[in-house]
Structure formats: structure tokens, C-alpha cells
Simulated assay, not measured.
Amino acid sequence: MEYKQGTVKIHTTNYQDAFIAVADDCPAEKGEIPPVKGEKKSVASLAFELVSKNPYRFTSDDVLFQVYAERQELTADELETARQLFFSKGQPCFRASPLTKRYGWGVHSDAAGRIALYGRETPEYEAFLCSGRVKVVKAMKSKR
């Protein structure tokens, strides 16, 4: 999706009233916390930490940019310009996230586009798949 802000096209990764189910080839039988290796946290571990501690507080765009900003060590003064530049080109959404492809997490987006994680072993995960109240999309497979 995209929209215009001034003369710059702004792309978004946000979904509304949708559920991203784990990929068909996801090896995790249940939601797993991504491991932290070394000094710098991975994209998966940063996103997991942010969303799991703040369910339905942030949109997908918020999470993806915050992870990017942290990994790039951006200052507060750089954030606004960096966010516009970041979303001036399309970014992969949570369908391409390691959380949905490798670690067994489904991502629910509410009517406002705010997200929360649900392990594939949970009753809530199953309820999203079967309810018919939200659009269900699958995460992308790791292998073709």
C-alpha cells in the first residue's frame, strides 16, 4: 500500500483487521522467543521484544521503523526525516518477518492497525484462523 505525503509517495506495511498466520514451512511447533546472539540484537529479537511487551500499542510500520532506527543508532533529531526516507520505498511487511517464517508467531492487526503476537499453539491463534472476522493471510515461505 502507498499514499502521498507532500510530493513523496509513502508506503505502508500496516494491515487492519487481519491475521498473518505462520508460514507453511515454519519449523517451530509453538511460538519461540528469538535467540540473542552476540552484542547486537537481531531484527527478530528486537521486533519480538517490542511487540510482546506492548501488544496492540504499535502498528507494523511503527515496529519496523523502530527496529531499523535502533539498529542504525539514529538520534532523536534524525527520526522524522529517516522515517520518511525509510517508507519512501516499499518495505517487507510481517509476512516476511522471521517471527512468522521461523519462530512460530502469528500477527494480529486490529481495526487501527496495531499489532500483537500469538504463538501458533495458542487457542487465540486458532480462533483467528477460524473466526471469519479477520482477513487471514499466510506468512511467506522460506523456500519456494
Rank of each mutant, 00 (worst) to 15 (best):
S131M: 14
S109N: 02
T81M: 11
T100R: 10
T7V: 10
E39D: 09
C130H: 11
N54S: 02
M140F: 09
A47T: 02
R57C: 02
K101F: 07
D24A: 14
P34G: 00
E29P: 00
V8Y: 04
E32L: 12
K53C: 10
S45R: 15
G104Q: 14
K138F: 06
K138L: 06
C93K: 02
E73L: 11
K143N: 08
V51S: 04
T100Y: 08
K41E: 07
E70P: 01
H11L: 02
R83G: 03
G38H: 09
R57M: 10
H108R: 10
P123E: 15
A47K: 04
F48E: 03
D61A: 05
S52P: 01
P34L: 04
E124C: 08
D62K: 03
Q72R: 14
G38Y: 04
Y15P: 01
P98N: 12
H11K: 11
E39G: 11
E78K: 09
F128W: 15
V63F: 01
Y118K: 13
E124F: 10
Q5G: 06
A44W: 01
V136C: 02
L117G: 07
T59P: 01
Y3W: 11
D62G: 00
D77Q: 13
D61L: 03
R120Q: 13
M140P: 04
A44L: 05
T75C: 04
R133N: 08
S97Q: 08
K9S: 01
A112I: 00
R102L: 15
L99K: 12
D77I: 01
F87M: 04
I115G: 07
T75V: 06
T81S: 12
N54G: 01
K135T: 15
V67K: 06
K30W: 00
A112F: 04
E29N: 08
L117R: 13
V22A: 03
L79H: 13
F19A: 01
Y3M: 05
M140I: 15
T75Q: 12
A44M: 04
Y68N: 11
K138R: 13
S142C: 07
E78P: 00
A116N: 11
K138E: 08
A21Y: 05
E49T: 14
Q5I: 10
S42K: 05
K40P: 03
Q66H: 09
K101A: 09
T122K: 08
E126S: 15
G90I: 08
E124Y: 12
L117C: 11
E126C: 03
G132T: 06
D77C: 05
L74H: 07
N14K: 03
K4R: 14
P55A: 09
K30P: 02
F87I: 12
A69P: 02
G132V: 14
P123K: 15
L50F: 13
Y15E: 07
Y68A: 10
L129H: 07
E70Y: 04
A28R: 01
R95T: 15
R102W: 09
E32Q: 11
Y3P: 09
K89Q: 14
Q84T: 13
V134W: 02
L117I: 15
R71E: 07
A96T: 03
N54L: 04
Q91C: 11
E32S: 00
K101C: 12
K4L: 05
A96V: 01
S45A: 12
L129W: 02
S60D: 10
G119Q: 11
